[in-house]
Amino acid sequence: MKGKVGIGMLLWAILITVSHIQLNLGWSSLRKEVAIMTGEQREELIIGFLPVT
């Protein structure tokens, strides 16, 4: 019984995590964050400009 509850909780946690990434974060954003964390990609900051004042 304990094992079933544990598996259920694990599946529930995975479901919530996947849903959060899908709905709130986005997979491409996650891939980028991981790449930066692992040093595969540089941190990037995009700055907008209007070439006029």
Partner: peptide
């Protein structure tokens, strides 16, 4: 090592 890139805009509402 960080990347700083620029993006050109042509109007304020889009910014």
């Amino acid at each position: 090592g960080s990347l700083f890139s620029s993006k050109k805009f042509t109007d304020w509402p889009t910014v």
